[in-house]
Each structure stands twice: as C-alpha cells, then as structure tokens.
C-alpha cells in the first residue's frame, strides 16, 4: 500500500517541529477528513533556509509534508517555482488511488508558498 518514499518520510521524518522566529506559516486543512498541515518557514532574503512542519492526518499526508519541507529548504522562490508539474507528481512516488488526495495537498502547499513570494525575512 505504501511506497518506500512514503514509508521512509513517515517513519523517519526529518523536519517535524516548529520555528519560533518563522517568517512565514503555511496552513492547509480539510474540515471533513481533518488532514491538517502547518509549515513554518525561515527566510534569508528570497531563500528558504529552514522549514519545519506539524501534520495531522494519514501517513501519506504526513510524509507529503516532510517531502515538501525537505524539497524547499535551501532553495529560492524562483527555483521552487521552476519545478515542473511532472516533477512535483513524482516527488511522492507511486500512489494508490486512496492516497491520490495527497497530490492535491502537495500542489496546495506549492500554491500557498507561491503566495508568499515577495515576503522578506523579519
């Protein structure tokens, strides 16, 4: 049911937690199923230098938050925007139909991050 990418990121997440002096917080959630992700982001000008998440939901959505956090750390907004839709889809590996909603979660995380372009470090 779970591919090795999801197993690895769910079982050994590397970016869980909070950033007290964050510059951005992204929140996505679904009121019915309850999948909720908070990602705190620390900027250095237009570069993301740190990201930590707290995620509540299915194993795939928790892994998605970790995969996204890992991907954005060390990149500029421009570099993150440049990733193609196909590359984004491949980030989570092969998913079962019941896990496909996590592709939307991933897409929403990228979209929400985009909305913060132009924000600067505090």
């Amino acid at each position: 049911m779970y591919n090795s990418v999801i197993v690895d990121h769910f079982t050994n997440p590397s970016n869980t937690g909070e950033i007290t002096d964050k510059d951005i917080q992204i929140k996505i959630g679904n009121s019915v199923c309850g999948d909720t992700i908070f990602i705190d982001i620390k900027l250095d000008r237009d570069h993301i230098i740190n990201a930590k998440f707290k995620a509540y939901g299915c194993a795939t959505s928790i892994a998605t938050a970790d995969i996204f956090s890992e991907y954005i750390i060390g990149k500029s907004f421009k570099e993150i925007q440049d990733i193609s839709v196909t590359e984004r889809k491949e980030m989570l590996g092969e998913l079962d139909p019941s896990q496909m909603h996590c592709l939307h979660i991933l897409e929403e995380l990228f979209t929400k991050l985009d909305e913060h372009q132009g924000d600067t470090a505090c």
Binding site: M1, V7, V32, C33, G34, T36, Y56, G57, A59
Partner: peptide, 21 residues
C-alpha cells in the same frame, strides 16, 4: 508492525478538527 504492512487507516475527527488516526 512496519508501515508497509499497514492496509487501512481509519480516522475520527472531533470538534478540534485534529483527526485521530
């Protein structure tokens, strides 16, 4: 059991919106 042996995730969500998995 390891996650790759997990077949089904079930949830309940209360008023806080945080699901129990």
């Amino acid at each position: 059991k390891p996650l790759n042996e997990i077949e089904f995730e079930m949830r309940s969500t209360g008023t806080s919106g945080i699901p129990s998995l």
